[in-house]
Simulated assay, not measured.
Amino acid sequence: MKNHFVSIIIPTYKDWPRLELCLNALKKQSYPQDHFEILVINNAPIEDPLPKKIQLAKNCRLLIEKLPGSYAARNKGLNECKGEIIGFTDSDCIPDLLWIENAVNFFNKFPKYQRMGGGIRIFSKNKLPSFVEWYDYIFAFPQEAYVRSGNAVTANMFAYKEVFRNVGFFNDKLMSGGDYQWGKLANKNGYKIGYAPESFVNHPARSTVSELVKKAKRVGEGQAMFNTTNRGSKYNRSLAYLKLVKPRFWEIKKIFAYYSDGINFLDKFFVVLLRHYITATGDYAKLKYENKK
């Protein structure tokens, strides 16, 4: 089984405590340490430098990117990396100890794929999640569905470097959705993607409504930025928004069909309300941005 040299790219923005947990997990990887490198890209280098208490491993390099945005930071890593295979995760993720090994095994076992989306497992701060955290358990990172549509989120994505050479890098003007846009281009160029749930990272559930709102706004604006379809007048776009905010019964069914120890009827009821609020917030952010055009 071939041991490819792998580059792991991790953008970070004022998130050193969680990044330290991520790096500690990478120090314990089953994959040989001399067969992979870690590139951490600080996206707030002036106001938030690396704390002295964080000791980087020998195979880890710290880069800086002043241009705002995680995709600009990832592009910095792509310019500097040496790996044949490129892996992406986020500073708040904790990779499984077999994460890299299982990703490389996937490519060795299935040579028809040039890209891979790995599993993303949600965990909560407390033993019993709040209804806000349950929201992320149910709706955050449906990676398998993303892969079926030809994409993968960069919380856990691998690809051969040659794909980036031929397709290009991420759109650094986007604050959200750059992985989706890049995935569409990769599909268009014939690069296939597969799903590898055994190559997983652990991602913390968002614990406050404000965190969910912030993400929804960022995603909505990101969708508006790369959506080049003519959607008609502001009036027609507003009518379309009103249609979107009506109850989505399939999502309600999904919430009440969700089973896990600890989630009760009241939690599910609050998740239903939260889902509609978050969805409406994201769609409204998209509408506002489109109306500025």
Rank of each mutant, 00 (worst) to 15 (best):
W182R: 07
Q33N: 05
G87E: 10
E144I: 04
K268D: 12
F269M: 15
N43Y: 01
M116T: 01
A205Y: 02
I122H: 06
G119R: 11
I10H: 03
N42R: 04
L23Y: 05
E290W: 15
I9F: 05
V167S: 11
F88C: 13
A186C: 06
G183D: 08
I278D: 10
D15A: 12
L274M: 13
D179P: 11
V163C: 08
C93P: 01
I278R: 12
I46Y: 02
V219P: 00
K127D: 08
L26S: 07
N79V: 04
I54F: 03
P111H: 02
R231K: 12
G168N: 06
V163I: 14
K288Y: 03
F256Y: 15
D267V: 14
L21T: 02
L63F: 15
A205N: 07
C22E: 02
K286H: 05
E65C: 15
A73G: 07
K112A: 06
G177W: 09
L63T: 11
A240M: 07
E290R: 15
V219C: 09
K217C: 09
E221W: 00
G178M: 08
H276P: 04
K112L: 05
N291K: 11
A285N: 09
I8D: 01
P17L: 09
E162W: 12
K293E: 10
D90S: 08
K288L: 13
G168R: 08
Q223L: 10
K66W: 01
Q181G: 02
A155L: 00
K243C: 08
N126T: 08
A103S: 15
S176H: 09
W16A: 00
G150C: 07
P197R: 14
Y135N: 14
G118V: 08
Q114C: 09
N126W: 01
K254T: 13
K53L: 05
F110Y: 15
N42L: 03
Y71C: 00
G119V: 08
L97Y: 05
T89K: 05
G232P: 00
Y289K: 15
E162Q: 15
N3T: 10
E65W: 05
G220M: 08
Y191M: 11
K215Y: 07
V245A: 05
N166D: 13
P129Q: 14
K214Y: 09
Y241D: 00
R275W: 09
P129D: 14
Y113N: 12
K217A: 03
K293V: 04
E65H: 08
L266N: 13
K292W: 00
Y259D: 12
G119L: 10
Y31M: 06
F170G: 03
W250A: 09
Y13L: 13
I8Y: 01
E211S: 15
F270Y: 15
I263A: 11
Y71S: 03
Y277V: 05
N59P: 05
D34M: 07
F123G: 01
N156I: 06
N291Q: 15
R218N: 10
N3M: 06
P247C: 04
G150I: 12
V40R: 10
F249K: 10
G177L: 06
L19Y: 02
I138D: 12
L97E: 14
F123A: 03
G118P: 03
I255M: 13
A73R: 10
A285Q: 09
R248E: 08
C81V: 04
Y13R: 14
S210A: 14
K109I: 02
T228A: 04
